[in-house]
Design a protein around this nucleic acid. Structure first.
Lengths: 253, 253
DNA sequence: CTTAAACTATGGTCTAACAATTGACATATT
DNA sequence: AATATGTCAATTGTTAGACCATAGTTTAAG
């Protein structure tokens, strides 16, 4: 007979419903902002129990496709996945797979030059003004307020990504910037030298963006990140050495 | 009085539980592969109802942090978010936000040169063998089997990303390749010219990777993608023109 | 030893009920 | 008339209980 039947997988009802609703949402049956049927309507139309319907809605919520509110005139409405949500998923992937700091830096080295290139080409006057304002705050904070400096640094990179007017690159870089922010806080990697390097690089990139010189913006971002990567590697080496020394001292006592 | 009270948000119990379990998983309380408590145990320890517990588990499942199986000795075990899952989330973000094909191409232009660079630097003998095997199949398919050609092309880019030994870049490029595969199927953008260009570019990049010449691999990937982007833009222009013509004819009749 | 049947802990699903939320509307108060 | 307050109703939030389906384990049969 037909032994060509691979292992058969019975899907859960909530997964089936979630997938079908997902297709309808992406297919345009429900536009962003439109209301999905109420839970009890879905119960009657699908024949499923309310628990399964709710589990399906939790899945869609985790995917950022719906937003559910309680109360009269509440319910589930179609939403667009936000940058922040994609960032958390990228973050979970990185943490769950123990992605190294080196890998993060490499990803940033890949993305940021293109972001700078596009920002120079596509920026609006508002983008430029925002970048200048943040640069000013960074220069201030670089002098003495290291936490603020790091925080504003994330803002700068976000603003740069926004100026590129590429939604995907914007979301990617936002996630990576946030993760490197965490890492730099833990490794306290923000010496005066590094701060000086960063502010200088920002100034030069910003000039290219103001002049809408895309190639210059790209190459400056490349060089900046190359230097940054070298510095970071040195810092990590130092940290390793220090912890090794600490371990040695521990063994002695 | 204190008017400094922002809008207060009461979280759902399932969200609270999901977040706490997520922290425990990422914090190492439950290692990958370890079993979470059973649903009924979670019910007793948390004081929540089983429905809420299950909704929390569906959220964690959507995040790729757990995998749930039925049956005796079943239950939820801790998992690592897979490339495929991150790809679907990136896909949802792109589709939900109507990310343009141009933006996808730009993202690929940003990522692929770095991937090629790292692949040349970090490849193993196995990586190289896999790439060669796929290249051979692509060359075969390029002659007459366009669908297979496109499919194997995705494989090639996946293998290249794997050779880079950077998990994050691997996941990013896998997602983007898959989405461009869809797009190229719909826009039937795979003329003999393009196929020739692609196979030629693969050959040159592969040579650089074999020689472990990272800089050459990067610059060749850059040039390849630049040419590809130009061709794609021309194809899109043609499609636009064609559909405009079609619309004009429709108006006449 | 091999095979099949019974066992059992677990997730999967449904029904039912009630609580909490929230916006609209009606009413009362100034 | 304007504003505050109360009431209502539809919807999600949450729990409880029951039963089914699944899948390893264990036992019994051959």
């Amino acid at each position: 007979m037909l032994d060509q039947l691979g292992s058969i997988n019975v899907p859960k009802s909530c997964d089936v419903l979630a997938e079908r609703l997902q297709q309808q949402i992406l297919g345009g049956t429900y536009a962003p902002g439109a209301a999905l049927p109420t839970e009890r309507e879905l119960v009657t139309t699908t024949g499923l129990g309310r628990g399964s319907v709710r589990e399906a809605l939790r899945i869609l919520e985790a995917q950022g496709l719906v937003r559910t509110r309680a109360g009269r005139y509440g319910g589930s409405v179609v939403a667009r996945p936000t940058d922040a949500l994609l960032a958390t998923h990228i973050n979970l992937f990185a943490k769950g797979n123990s992605v190294s700091l080196r890998a993060l830096v490499e990803a940033r080295q890949a993305l940021e030059p293109m972001v700078a290139y596009l920002a120079a080409r596509n920026r609006t006057a508002e983008d430029l003004a925002a970048l200048k304002a943040i640069s000013k705050r960074i220069d201030q904070a670089a002098i003495d307020d290291v936490p603020l400096f790091l925080q504003e640094n994330v803002q700068w990179h976000s603003a740069l990504a926004a100026a590129s007017h590429n939604d995907l690159l914007r979301a990617f870089t936002a996630s990576i910037s946030a993760q490197m922010f965490e890492a730099s806080r833990l490794d306290k990697f923000a010496s005066p030298d590094v701060r000086g390097l960063v502010t200088h690089a920002h100034r030069r990139i910003l000039q290219a963006i103001e002049a809408q010189d895309a190639d210059a913006a790209r190459s400056r971002a490349e060089r900046d990140l190359q230097a940054y990567a070298v510095l970071l590697e040195a810092a990590v080496r130092d940290t390793m050495k220090a912890s090794a020394k600490l371990a040695a001292r521990k063994r002695k006592s």
